[in-house]
Design a protein around this nucleic acid. Structure first.
Lengths: 220, 220
DNA sequence: CGGACACTTGATACGACTCAAAGGGAGTGG
DNA sequence: CCACTCCCTTTGAGTCGTATCAAGTGTCCG
């Protein structure tokens, strides 16, 4: 375990707006968010962007880079952040000596696959209101799992980034938030969101797989 | 390597329509398709289904089950098939002794994550025509990688299953295929598809990330 | 304090869904 | 082997949801 500590101790600071890595960069390490907030993005040749996920403390980023030794997406900080750099070669070696680490690692990658399947379900089957409700509830759950308030939080990302993640345009995100507020389900003050009647949101997504995915922190 | 053979030699036959495993089943093994064709499905509480992928010879299924020791999706045979059962506990043990196997394994899981990101891009950003073009080209590529004709093949899945995978309704799939045929780009005879002008299809998806994902065979 | 950027809201257009009906194959049972 | 049935597929017409276009407002940052 002291070996593991040695690997983890490497820390790196990333300012808001900066990229931790970009698609195409050579892959050398995974990154665990220590503090802060990130988005991951894949982009098509003609410039269209798809946000593939948002990551907060404890989350692991870069798993998609293992397959090709090249990062497959961008990781951009949405606020000043702090990450642990985990050199992959060293993790691989350690995994052989520490079975529980290897097993933990497989679990993490599998969890990411499960999460992606949930997003596919969301993008393939749900309407705008359902997507946004699922998004808010997921965020709420992940924040509360980290000891923050579940029903009162500040969005780190723009409407456009939410839209990109949910397969919607920013105007639709804005309109839907307004509608939720008009219903009395949430209160919206710019990026400050309060969930006033989470049960109504849950009702919207009930049947749609309850929030599209659990958390997937590294628990490291 | 002979140890690996011992693991792999376990074979299992699955008839068309049968499930290899279902969401919720206890996870014990991964499955590599030897011959045949499968679909993977996640379903929401209210019965909506999302096809998360189609798998042919060499593809690995069940990676999503590792995280929770429970399969997260259904695997249903779309034609009489033959799979290798790979007990996961044994693979884990072998991975420690054979570094190249461990590495190969990480690569496979990562590749699945990359594939899912491609599907997310497709579901989040593309229009019906683009989705279907990407789907056909991807299928074509995977078939040709296995030594089959790239431009002349038989669909194993129904219009509804294609639609579920692409986030479209079956009528839209049917209409779009008809339109491609009217344009002279493909010929459609029920499930028999011929790509007459693949370059036009490529033009449709150009910019949208060229086919949403590469192959991900096990190469075992 | 100025300017750019992010957000909201409205009007309109378009794409995909829904509902509906008819045709064609594949598989089954006689 | 044939006839029947069921399901898959195609195609059409109309509707709904979301994108698009366009102002206008507010806010954050320099």
């Amino acid at each position: 375990m002291s070996q593991l500590d040695a690997v983890i101790r490497q820390s790196r600071r990333v300012k808001r707006g900066e990229y931790l890595f970009r698609a195409g960069d050579p892959f050398r390490a995974l990154f665990a968010v220590r503090t802060g907030f990130f988005k991951n993005c894949v982009s098509s040749h003609d410039g269209r962007e798809q946000v593939t996920g948002f990551h907060m403390s404890g989350d692991l980023m870069g798993l998609d880079g293992i397959s090709s030794n090249t990062h497959g997406c961008d990781a951009q900080a949405l606020e000043d952040s702090d990450v642990c750099e985990l050199p992959f070669a060293r993790l691989e070696l350690l995994g052989r000596d520490i079975p529980s680490l290897q097993r933990h690692f497989f679990r993490l990658m599998s969890r990411e696959i499960v999460r992606d399947q949930g997003v596919m379900l969301l993008l393939g089957n749900m309407k705008a209101e359902e997507r946004l409700a699922a998004f808010l509830l997921n965020l709420s759950q992940r924040l509360s799992a980290r000891g923050f308030a579940a029903n009162d939080f500040v969005l780190r990302m723009s409407r456009e980034e939410i839209g990109s993640f949910l397969g919607l345009k920013l105007e639709t995100v804005s309109r839907t938030l307004s509608k939720f507020q008009a219903n009395g389900w949430i209160s919206v003050d710019h990026k400050h969101i309060r969930l006033l009647q989470p049960e109504h949101l849950k009702q919207l997504v009930s049947g749609c797989a309850g929030g599209f995915a659990d958390d997937h922190s590294a628990h490291a």
